[in-house]
Amino acid sequence: MEPPGEETLVERARRGDSVAFETLVLAYQSLAFRTAFVIAGDASDAEEAAQDAFVKAHRALGRFHTGEPFRPWLLTIVANEARNRRRARGRRAALTLRAAVEPGANGEDPEAAALASERRERLLSTVERLSDDDRDVLACRYLLELSEEETAAALGIPRGTVKSRTHRALARLQEELQ
């Protein structure tokens, strides 16, 4: 028996199949939360944004074009919700890195591990100092590893703008790092 593809699940959800919609929620909840968290920078804002996004997506299923990919469509809604919360808060909480285990704990050279960790800290703080536009495009493309199409959907900008903004943001980041 072939498993239902995403298209089938979306179609079933449109017809009112709640299990199909919940399957989509379960499958995409961590992507939605992570995306919202990277944009909003706050866990409770991210949770609310992701939850609201799924409720709104359910309401808007009737307007979803059959055959189109669900993921970018959902990301548009999630990112909108996350940006609204960031705006309401008036500032974005800065992203941080996980606490290092123990430099060199995995058998690597402790000095090299410490340097790599320092480099990562510097890179993240530099990304965080960029403008919202530059920071968001880099966060979507690299930290979240979204495709250009998904980034365009999440940020509500044309794909060409994603390309040019990414190029510009990388150049600025490089400049700041030197």
């Binding site: 919940e22 929620v25 379960l26 909840q29 961590s30 939605a32 939360f33 992570r34 968290f37 990277v38 866990a43 949770e47 992701a50 939850q51 799924f54 992203l95 941080t96 890195l97 996980r98 606490a99 480099r119 990562r120 890179l123 993240l124 990304v127 880099l138 493309r141 690299y142 930290l143 979240l144 590893e145």
Partner: peptide, 19 residues
């Protein structure tokens, strides 16, 4: 590549169950 690698080290809380 460094930016992509950075994503793996971000302190993102565990996603809450939303279903």
């Amino acid at each position: 590549l460094e930016l992509r690698d950075l994503g793996e080290y971000l302190d993102v809380p565990t996603a809450p169950p939303l279903v």
